[in-house]
Design a protein around this nucleic acid. Sequence first.
DNA 1: GTAATTTCTTGATTTTTATCAAGTGCTCTA
DNA 2: TAGAGCACTTGATAAAAATCAAGAAATTAC
Lengths: 196, 196
Amino acid sequence: MQRNQNITELELYIKSYFEIASSKDLHSITSLFKLATIKKGEFLLKPGKHCQSLSFVQSGLLRMFVTTNDKEVTQWISKQGYFATDLSSFIFETPSRWTIQALVDTEVYTITKNDYKKLGDIVPKWAEIEKLFLVRCFTLLEDRIFSHLSMTAEERYNFFFENHKELFNQVPLQYIASMLGMTAETFSRIRKKQLM
Amino acid sequence: MQRNQNITELELYIKSYFEIASSKDLHSITSLFKLATIKKGEFLLKPGKHCQSLSFVQSGLLRMFVTTNDKEVTQWISKQGYFATDLSSFIFETPSRWTIQALVDTEVYTITKNDYKKLGDIVPKWAEIEKLFLVRCFTLLEDRIFSHLSMTAEERYNFFFENHKELFNQVPLQYIASMLGMTAETFSRIRKKQLM
DNA sequence: GTAATTTCTTGATTTTTATCAAGTGCTCTA
DNA sequence: TAGAGCACTTGATAAAAATCAAGAAATTAC
C-alpha cells in the first residue's frame, strides 16, 4: 500500500507529461526505478565521477552545484517531481562536472545507466517519450538564459518566487541567490523589499 | 559536383558528431534536407507561427531573437555548422516565441516537420542520434547559464570571443552584446580594452 | 538549554553595468 | 557623390549589484 502510494509521484509525472505512455508501458518504466533514501548532506554525485544514475525526487531536495577556486555556484535545486543527474555525464559517460547533494533527507527513485539502456527495448514508445522529455528540458534552459538576457536581479527573484514559493522556506537562501545569479546580500535586500 | 560539395557540410557534421551513423543512414538523413537560400533580412520564422522546419546553416548567418515591449533580445546566432529552429514549437507544435532572420544571404539545408517525422522509420539508429544531439544542445545551454551565474560581462566577452572570433567582423556587434547579456555600450568598452 | 556554527541581514563603500546624449564613421542608395 | 540611416564609440551620470565588515537570528550539536 505504502509502496503503491510512493510510486505514484513518478507515475503521475510521466502520465501527466507523456499521455503517450500506456499503463503497461508506464509500469515497465517505473518498475526500473528503485526507491532510495539520501540523508541530508549526503552526495548523489561528485565531480569527476561518471554519473551512473538518473534520479527522480519523490520527496526532499537535491542541490546541483560546482565549486570553483573562489566560490560555489548552485546551478539548480531539484524538488519533488523534478529529476536530478549530470545529463551529459550520464549519456556520454564523461566525468561529471556537478556535485549533487541532499539538502534534507530525500527520497529518490533512481534508475541505473544499465537499466536506462534497456528502456528502449522494453517500452515501444520510449524514444518518443525521451525526446519529448529532453525538448522540455531544453526549453526550460532556454527560458532561463532569456531571463539573464532580459531581466534584472529583482525580476528574476520575483519570477522564481512566483513559481517556487515553497523553496523559500526550505532551502538556505544563499543557494537560491546563487542559482538566480546574484549574491546573498542582494537577494536579502530584494527579499526585504518584496515583503514590505 | 557542386551539389556534392554542398551537402558535405551537413554530412560532415552528422558524421563527426554521430559516428554511429552508417554511410547509408547518413545519406537517408541528409537527402531529406533541402537546400534553400534566405536573402539578407528575410525571415525563416516569425513569432506566433508554428515552426515547421529545422534548418542547418550551410553558409551565412541566422539570428534568433525576441522583441519585447521595450527592447529586442538576441538569443542566439547560428553560423555555419549550426542548426536553427524554435525547438519547442517544432516538436510540440506550439506557437513560436522567436523570430529567426538572416543577417546575410544564407544557405540552409532544411527539413520539414513532415519529413522529420519519417526519420525514425527510415533510419534505424535515428532515435539514438536524435537523443545524443538533444543532450549536446542541453549541455551547451547549461554552460551558458553557468556563465551567467559565475562570470562578469568581460569574462563572458572573452570566453565567447575565444570560441567565435569570426563572428566579430561579420555580425553587428550589438547583437553579440545582447546575446551575451550586456548593452552595446558595455560591449564596446570591453572591446576597446581587449584590443589595446 | 547553552554554546557553537551557520545563515541572514544591514550599512558603508566600491565596482560594474546601464542609461542618456552626442558625435563619428561607415554603407547603401538614389 | 550627397545624404539618410545604421552601427559604433565616447563621455557623463545614474542605477544596479558586488564586496567588505559587523551583527543578529536561526539552527545544530553537545
